[in-house]
């Protein structure tokens, strides 16, 4: 292989005049983090609502939850992003479509929302499993005490269900971060996007993607560690994994 290694490349100025190549990668990292954070908030909130709906005694709510999950998890993420980004503005009324297309940071919002909804279907399934794993008597006990359905979920079922699904939720959080890389296809200059442009400007493909890889690993290591702390923090004395 005829390749000129140049690890010093990171400290050379990039052609955009925004500092060094390292600065370029770090700005990509910042965008990755921002996109992932917003996507995760969307995924957690909508996923929780849909997950709860799938466990309610109402047939309508079950049906909606089922349709939602199957819609968002059965289409490739890439296709979903394209639908949000290229197709949605065209099928909306003209004015709304135009407004969408001219939205500043459109790739960012599209990526966050697209990844968010995609991941929310997965969160919904996890939460449904967590709620279903609780003894039936828990809901009965809450009901028998006079708690309403909303209160029963808020104070009794969800605190336990979320504790139970924390480990798989960690995986979903990591997936959310990694999935933001798909946004390169709609022009979002997140970490993968910046590594790609660094390669195109400098031809140092190995250095660029080595750095991107390390940054992804670091971020995810931080998330995993934080989630471990969270697990320990909310552990219930005497219960399953508690001490």
């Amino acid at each position: 292989m005829n390749y000129n290694w140049n690890w010093g490349i990171f400290f050379q100025p990039n052609p955009m005049g925004t500092g060094t190549y390292l600065d370029m990668l770090l700005s990509g990292l910042a965008l990755t983090l921002k996109t992932a954070a917003l996507a995760w908030v969307i995924a957690l909130i909508t996923g929780s609502i849909v997950g709860v709906m799938r466990t309610l005694p109402s047939k309508g709510a079950n049906w909606f939850g089922f349709a939602y999950v199957e819609f968002f998890r059965n289409m490739p993420l890439l296709v979903q992003l394209f639908l949000w980004f290229f197709v949605l503005p065209e099928i909306l009324p003209r004015a709304a479509g135009l407004w969408l297309k001219q939205l500043p940071n459109a790739p960012f919002w599209t990526a966050a929302i697209g990844v968010g909804f995609f991941m929310s279907a997965r969160v919904a399934v996890q939460l449904q499993a967590g709620i279903s794993s609780l003894p039936r008597g828990q809901k009965m006990a809450a009901t028998a005490l006079g708690l309403t359905t909303v209160q029963g979920y808020r104070y009794v079922l969800l605190p336990m269900a979320f504790r139970i699904i924390l480990p798989p939720l960690t995986s979903e959080f990591l997936n959310t971060i990694k999935n933001t890389a798909v946004a390169i296809t709609i022009g979002l200059l997140e970490l993968t996007g910046q590594a790609r442009s660094m390669q195109e400007f400098s031809f140092q493909v190995f250095e660029a993607f080595t750095a991107a890889t390390i940054l992804y690993l670091l971020v995810n290591a931080v998330v995993v560690t934080a989630m471990r702390f969270l697990e320990r923090w909310v552990a219930i004395p005497g219960y399953i994994t508690g001490k």
Binding site: M140, A141, A144, Y155, P159, M160, I236, Y239
Partner: peptide
Amino acid sequence: GMVFQHFELFPH
């Protein structure tokens, strides 16, 4: 008031 076979205290 209701008391269940499996207690059903709220574990958290």
